[in-house]
Design a protein around this nucleic acid. Structure first.
Lengths: 240, 240
DNA sequence: CGACTTCTTGAGGAACGTCAACCGCAGTGG
DNA sequence: CCACTGCGGTTGACGTTCCTCAAGAAGTCG
């Protein structure tokens, strides 16, 4: 028993240092942990539960379209509340691990009880959902009318904001890529080939340097930021 | 004074019959109404407030990219809680009315007090945000890898689910289009010209009939549903 | 080392964006 | 009453872009 406790105590305690959970009083956060069941997940594992917290790693909601098209419509990162319950049961999609991750399953009825007795937890969950909705809007902006280069640049900055980024990497403009190339493609709505070509292009222009597959150096941060915000539109068809 | 009360009493009372607000106890919902300031909005009006409820009409969050690209990253419809406050103040975007609408502004600190004293309201807001996040995921799925035809078909079904749809229209497979063609375009990430061409194409195939500009009849609902769910992928480059 | 998956590179074409012009309609003013 | 104007929407021609397909390279695991 003590052993089992230990197994999840380490990463799961860590999430209490993350916003917004760190704002909770100690007793509440302890409740939170005790009520959760930790799941270790490998890449590709499907989570058959729609309420919990990501202790570490990366999860996503995956949907399949005809023609083998695969869509990643949301990314959940370390510290995120995952609450994908919904009233209308349409097109739910599967919650799937994109890399080695830990998921702290929460019991639904128990959580409901908390919400009734404790407005702090309710407020914390509200701020989480609000934040995730805001991130979804940002992502939508990326998808709606940006070019692949702009989309990828924007995604790099999103990864830069992930809590895994250590302060040193952040200072040095190093971004860790937590997911595979094809997952990136499914997330930003292009094909893996295009992701590859875009990265190659940015390297050629000396805007980034790929240290390792999952480690990219933003050599020209201002330019990259400009591109991410929409600074590289489709070329006009008419010559100047 | 009585007159002013009357002005907003009518549409704003109506929203209490909508999910999830209708689940609230009468005294709480009355508080909700009293605390709000109703704003009448015309198409194009910008709302400089990030907390409230849509009494009727349609609002959207609009962002501008370089090159004159305009993005509508979320739609808010009748009954929706609009809570777009966020911790990181990046790329906020403007909340703008897409047609004649009424917005019930809520006071932030007052709402905060409610949440502390009343878990019912907290739960209601939670379920609202959860639902909107779910809708955002659906929209993301549409944007990521669907063709324009699929995107538009999907949007028609979204409009069909809007609370304005009267039961009769629903039975008769009539969809009311609440926003302009160019807003549709900015929302599904294509150009107005493409929207026009797609509609024309669907009409030619006898899948829909356009009664009026803002009234479309789904002549072949099953086919349309199939298309909306991804049934019309990009044509292969290789001949069969 | 070989079997495997993931990523990259290359060629070619469909598709959607770009531009420009036109249409229909509503409001305005002579 | 009609010309004028402005706006939203539509149509057509054309070209860039990114997807498709296929094959090779690189990384991963037994």
């Amino acid at each position: 028993m003590a052993q089992i406790q230990r197994v999840f105590a380490e990463p799961d305690q860590a999430l209490l240092t993350l916003s917004p959970w760190k704002e909770l009083d100690a007793p509440h956060s302890a409740d939170l942990l005790r009520a959760g069941t930790p799941d270790m997940l490998n890449r590709g594992d499907v989570v058959d539960h729609d309420l919990g917290i990501v202790s570490f790693g990366a999860l996503g909601i995956e949907r399949a379209l005809s023609n083998g098209r695969r869509v990643l419509c949301t990314l959940f990162r370390k510290g995120d509340l995952v609450d994908v319950r919904r009233t209308e049961r349409i097109r739910q999609g599967a919650l799937v691990a994109l890399k080695r991750s830990s998921f702290l399953r929460l019991d639904e009825s128990l959580t409901e009880t908390w919400l009734t007795n404790n407005t702090d937890i309710a407020k914390t969950m509200l701020s989480q959902l609000r934040e995730q909705f805001a991130r979804a809007r940002d992502h939508t902006t990326d998808l709606v009318s940006k070019t692949p280069v702009e989309k990828l640049a924007s995604l790099l900055f999103e990864f830069r904001r992930w809590p895994e980024t250590c302060p040193e990497d952040h200072r040095n403009n190093i971004v860790r890529i937590p997911i595979s190339r094809s997952d990136i493609a499914s997330y930003i709505g292009v094909k893996p080939e295009t992701v590859s070509r875009v990265i190659k292009k940015l390297v050629r222009e000396k805007l980034i340097i790929v240290h390792k597959q999952d480690r990219i150096y933003l050599a020209d941060l201002p330019s990259m930021r400009r591109i991410a915000n929409g600074g590289r539109p489709r070329q006009s068809t008419r010559q100047a």
